[in-house]
């Protein structure tokens, strides 16, 4: 489904990604973790072309993202993305947030878009808030809506960029619950997160990154029970025992 081959990326002279190669199969859930500044967010932003890469090749469902004249808008509309700070459109009601791209990008009719939006809002437990504006909702509620907004596009895969890092502790669970449900339904997911409990529960594989390189890329249980690299051991000891 998603294939990343030997990608490297620089911000002027500073190298942020070094020769990263991995892939995500259909229905697979992959968690990307690592210390801050390790390039994990940058890596998943390259998958839908939000960040350009200077070397290497990325394909999603057979379409090359890194091609010179790739039709990125069409490609992006098929990949959902959820951000750390939700990024809901503040001037639109919850319902409009879910309808905008459905109508303008997919060309759905108003009634189709509203029906799809209402169904997904019910699914994430936000059916009572359709008329509210994002700033009138809690962080957890906003993030659940952001997930619903991405799902409204009927994506073939979902990217999550630290979806719970900006949330108060008591709201993390409501967002993770939605993500776990999504994973169990077979959605292809690439998740940047520090939530190791989530990783253990639903991830098929864990990718550990440091200084822009993929250090480990292994099945979840192997990674947790038996990390090979010193850096991964060090990272796990810090993150699991705090």
């Amino acid at each position: 489904m998603i294939s990343i081959e030997n990608i490297s990326k620089w911000y002027s002279d500073f190298r942020v990604l070094t020769d990263c190669t991995t892939s995500v199969k259909k229905g697979e859930v992959v968690v990307v973790c690592g210390p801050s500044g390790s390039g994990k967010s940058t890596l998943i932003k390259c998958v839908n072309g939000l960040e350009p890469v200077q070397e290497g090749r990325i394909t999603v469902d057979g379409d090359e993202v890194t091609a010179k004249h790739a039709n990125l808008t069409a490609l992006r509309s098929r990949i959902g993305m959820v951000f750390q700070h939700f990024e809901l459109y503040p001037h639109m009601s919850v319902l409009e947030n879910l309808c905008l791209a459905q109508e303008k990008v997919l060309g759905r009719s108003r009634s189709e878009a509203v029906a799809r939006a209402e169904k997904l809002l019910a699914r994430v437990g936000m059916a009572d808030h359709v008329k509210k504006y994002p700033s009138q909702l809690s962080g957890g509620q906003q993030q659940r809506i952001a997930i619903a907004r991405s799902l409204a596009m009927d994506p073939i895969a979902m990217l999550f960029d630290e979806p719970t890092s900006a949330l108060d502790p008591e709201m993390i669970k409501e967002v993770l619950d939605v993500m776990v449900e999504l994973a169990q339904e077979g959605m292809t997911m690439m998740v940047v997160t520090h939530e190791m409990g989530f990783a253990r529960k639903v991830a098929d594989r864990v990718i550990f990154m440091d200084e822009g390189a993929i250090i480990e890329d292994r099945p979840t249980t192997e990674f947790f029970d038996n990390p090979v690299s010193e850096r991964a051991k060090d990272f796990l000891s810090k993150i699991l025992n705090h």
Binding site: N48, L50, T73, A74, L75, R76, S77, R78, I79, M81, F83, H85, E87, L88, Y89, P90, L100, A101, K104, V105, A146, R149, S150, M153
Partner: peptide, 23 residues
């Protein structure tokens, strides 16, 4: 306007023109 909003609009497949017009 926070750059994240542009990123979100772009990530949902809105073109540059649509991002300006609607966001």
């Amino acid at each position: 306007v926070p750059p994240g909003l542009t990123a979100a609009a772009t990530a949902h497949g809105l073109s540059v023109g649509q991002t300006y017009r609607y966001v």
